[in-house]
């Protein structure tokens, strides 16, 4: 039996399709019994959907440090 914390972590991992078969099995078993984790799991999936929908863009670290250099902030 896994804890809620573990189940939520696996659920997050599963959002990136990187949870193993046994992890997924344990998580689903837990989610069946735990209402909080069930809600969390649904919301988490929705969050993934939202992130995809928003087509998020971000600057990479190198671009950011370049930007900092240009602004004269070396850190």
């Amino acid at each position: 039996m896994i804890t809620c914390e573990e189940s939520k972590t696996i659920c997050s991992k599963n959002q990136y399709k990187e949870a193993s078969w046994s992890e997924r099995f344990n998580m689903y078993l837990h989610v069946l019994m735990c209402k909080t984790c069930f809600k969390f799991s649904r919301k988490n999936t929705k969050l993934t959907g939202l992130c995809n929908e928003a087509s998020l863009q971000a600057l990479s670290d190198t671009e950011k440090s370049e930007l900092k250099n240009k602004l004269g902030q070396n850190s």
């Binding site: 939520k8 972590t9 659920c11 997050s12 991992k13 969390f40 919301k43 969050l47």
Partner: peptide, 16 residues
């Protein structure tokens, strides 16, 4: 890493 991702995601759910 996964714990960090999980924490980030749960704060995001609370914040959004």
């Amino acid at each position: 890493l996964w714990v960090l991702v999980f924490r980030a995601r749960s704060s995001l759910m609370g914040c959004l």
